[in-house]
Design a protein around this nucleic acid. Structure first.
Length: 465
RNA sequence: GACCCCUUCGUCUAGUGGUUAGGACACCAGCCUUUCACGCUGGUAACACGGGUUCGAGCCCCGUAGGGGUCGCCA
C-alpha cells in the first residue's frame, strides 16, 4: 500500500503556523514512507472562501518547499459526487430525508437548553414515512447513525479514543440546497483520493467519530487517523490575531528562512532523541508519526530565532546577499550600486555570524551602502573626540602603507597600537565608528577589506576631519 | 453544561518499571576577544496533586485539579 496524505485547508483565512506544521507533518510522513503528498482546497463555503486566501496557501507551501505530487483538488468541483454518495446512502437506508426546518431546529435546541439537555437533535423523520411530508417541501439528508454501541477511532497519535453512540446524533450530510456538509465532503474526497493517512489538527478529533460513521455506512475502508495537538501562543492561550505574526508569509517578511521555520515547526510537537537541527533530508529520514507528542505546544520566538540563526550561518552567501540586497532596496537613502553589492558579498561571511534574521542581517549590512558623510549613532559619535580624530589620521597613514590584506591590516593596526602605547581596543573602536557609524560590526580587518582601500580611507578622512 | 483529549525544567522535548531524570532555547557565571556576535566551559531549573498496583513508578491503574478541543443545513 502506498501512503497518500493530504493537507486540506479551507481558503477562508490565512495559512497560519498551525496549518503549516500540519502540512509539514503530512509531507514528511508521506516522503518518509515513499508515498505521495496531496493538497485539497476546501472551498465549499463560497461566501467566505477567497482566491486571495487560496493564493496565500499555495505561496506559503511553495515557500516552505512542501511540493505536492498532484495538482490541488478544489472541493467545490466535486458537489455532484458528494450528492451522489448521499443518494446512495439514502437508497441503502443508511440515511433519510429530514424535513425539519431551520426554525424547527432552533426551537428544538432552545427547548433542550431550557430543559438542561444537550443540543442533540433527534429528528422525527428518522422513522417517519417521507410521504407524510408536504409535497415539494425542502429536505436535508441525515445520516442514520447507529443508536447502540460505540464508535472507536484508533488514533495514531492519541491512541484509542471511543465514544458512546448515544452521544452522537444524526448529522446532516446533504443540505436542503443539495450542497454537502463538511463532514460528508471530507469523507467522500478522502476516500476518492485514496488517502491512507489523515494527519490533521486535534480540533478534528471529535469530528472523526462522525466521519467514521459515514465510512461505515458506505462500507468503505477507513484511513488511519493521526490528530496532532494544537499550537498555542507564547502566553499559552489559543493562537489568534492578537499574537502578531499569523500568516506564514509574515514569517517570511520578518526574515526567517523557510528551512529554519520548518526545522522549528518540526521540533514543535515532534522529537527524536536529542536531534535539534535537521535538514529536510534528515527530517524525511527520521520523521514518523510515533514521534509526535500528544500535548499542545507553545510558540517560542526565542528558540525560533536561534534556529534561524543556525540556518543563516549555514546558508549560501550568494543567496543571503540577494536577500539582503532585496531588503535594502526598500530602504531610502542608500547608494546601492555594484560597489555596495560587492562590499556586502565580501563581508557576508562575517555578517551572517551575527544575525538571527534576514532583517538583522540587512540592518547590519546597510552601512556598507551608506553614502558619505556617514550618519553616526550617538555612541559612535561620542568616540570621535578631537583626540581620537587626530589619532585616526595617524591610523589612516599606517593603514595606507599596508597592502590592505587582512593580515597586513592587522599587522598595521597592532603595530600602530604598540608604537603609540595604546590598547588595541582604544584604536579599533574609534576606527569602527569612523568606518561604520556604529560601535558594533564584524572584525575591523574584515570591514576594511570589504570597504576597500579608497572607500575605507575616504570614510576615515571624512570622520577625522 | 455534555462528550473527547492533554499534563517532565520558564519554553520545546528525551525518557516505554530500577537513570546522579538527558538534550535544546532562554537565563546566570566564566573563557575567547578589537566591539557585537559565534564558539567553548560550568551553573540555576521539571516528573501538576492525591490514592493505589509493585520489592521498586516520570513510566501501569483510579480519582482530583488545571489546560485544550468539539458540540451548525461553518470548515
Amino acid at each position: 500500500m502506498t501512503v497518500r496524505t493530504r493537507f486540506a485547508p479551507s481558503p477562508t483565512g490565512l495559512l497560519h503556523i498551525g496549518g503549516a506544521r500540519t502540512a509539514l507533518f503530512n509531507y514528511l510522513f508521506a516522503r518518509h514512507h515513499g508515498g505521495q503528498f496531496l493538497l485539497r482546497i476546501e472551498d465549499t463555503d463560497r461566501a467566505r472562501s477567497t482566491p486571495e486566501a487560496t493564493q496565500v496557501i499555495l505561496d506559503g507551501l511553495a515557500w516552505l518547499g512542501l511540493e505536492t505530487d498532484e495538482a490541488p483538488l478544489f472541493q467545490s468541483t466535486r458537489q455532484a459526487r458528494h450528492a451522489e454518495v448521499a443518494q446512495q446512502m439514502l437508497a441503502a437506508g443508511r440515511a433519510y430525508k429530514c424535513f425539519l426546518t431551520a426554525a424547527d431546529l432552533e426551537q428544538m435546541r432552545a427547548q433542550a437548553r431550557a430543559e438542561g439537555r444537550g443540543p442533540r437533535i433527534d429528528s422525527p423523520w428518522r422513522d417517519r414515512d417521507p410521504a407524510e411530508a408536504p409535497p415539494g417541501a425542502p429536505f436535508a439528508i441525515r445520516l442514520r447513525a447507529p443508536r447502540d454501541g460505540e464508535t472507536v477511532v484508533d488514533d495514531l497519535v492519541q491512541s484509542e479514543v471511543r465514544v458512546a453512540n448515544t452521544e452522537l446524533d444524526d448529522m446532516i450530510i446533504l443540505r436542503s440546497d443539495g450542497s454537502p456538509t463538511y463532514q460528508h465532503a471530507v469523507v467522500v474526497d478522502d476516500h476518492d483520493m485514496g488517502i491512507t493517512h489523515v494527519i490533521r489538527g486535534d480540533d478534528h478529533l471529535t469530528n472523526t467519530f462522525r466521519q467514521v460513521q459515514i465510512y461505515d455506512a458506505m462500507g468503505w475502508e477507513k484511513p488511519r487517523f493521526g490528530h496532532v495537538s494544537l499550537i498555542h501562543g507564547a502566553d499559552g492561550t489559543k493562537l489568534s490575531k492578537r499574537h502578531g505574526a499569523q500568516s506564514i508569509t509574515e514569517f517570511r517578511d520578518m526574515g526567517y528562512l523557510p528551512e529554519a521555520l520548518c526545522n522549528y515547526l518540526l521540533r514543535l510537537g515532534w522529537g527524536h532523541g536529542d536531534a535539534e537541527i535537521l535538514s529536510r533530508a534528515e527530517a524525511v529520514a527520521l520523521f514518523d508519526i510515533d514521534g509526535v507528542g500528544r500535548a499542545a505546544s507553545r510558540m517560542d520566538y526565542a528558540k525560533l530565532a536561534h534556529v534561524n540563526g543556525v540556518w543563516i550561518r549555514a546558508a549560501d552567501d550568494d543567496r543571503l546577499t540577494r536577500e539582503v540586497l532585496a531588503r535594502l532596496a526598500r530602504q531610502p537613502g542608500l547608494a546601492l550600486g555594484t560597489a555596495a553589492a560587492h562590499r556586502i558579498r565580501a563581508l557576508l561571511p562575517q555578517l551572517k555570524e551575527r544575525a538571527k534574521t534576514l532583517v538583522e542581517l540587512a540592518d547590519s549590512a546597510a552601512f556598507l551602502a551608506h553614502p558619505l558623510p556617514l550618519a553616526m549613532e550617538p555612541k559612535a559619535a561620542a568616540l570621535l573626540t578631537a583626540e581620537n580624530r587626530l589619532m585616526l589620521r595617524e591610523v589612516a597613514a599606517a593603514l595606507a602603507a599596508s597592502d590592505f590584506s587582512p593580515s597586513g591590516l592587522d599587522a598595521a593596526l597592532r603595530g600602530y597600537a604598540e608604537q603609540t602605547g595604546r590598547k588595541l581596543g582604544s584604536v579599533a573602536q574609534p576606527l569602527r565608528a569612523a568606518l561604520t557609524g556604529s560601535t558594533v560590526s564584524p572584525g575591523i580587518d574584515a570591514v576594511l577589506v570589504a570597504l576597500g582601500r579608497d572607500e575605507a580611507l575616504g570614510r576615515i578622512a571624512a570622520a577625522s576631519a
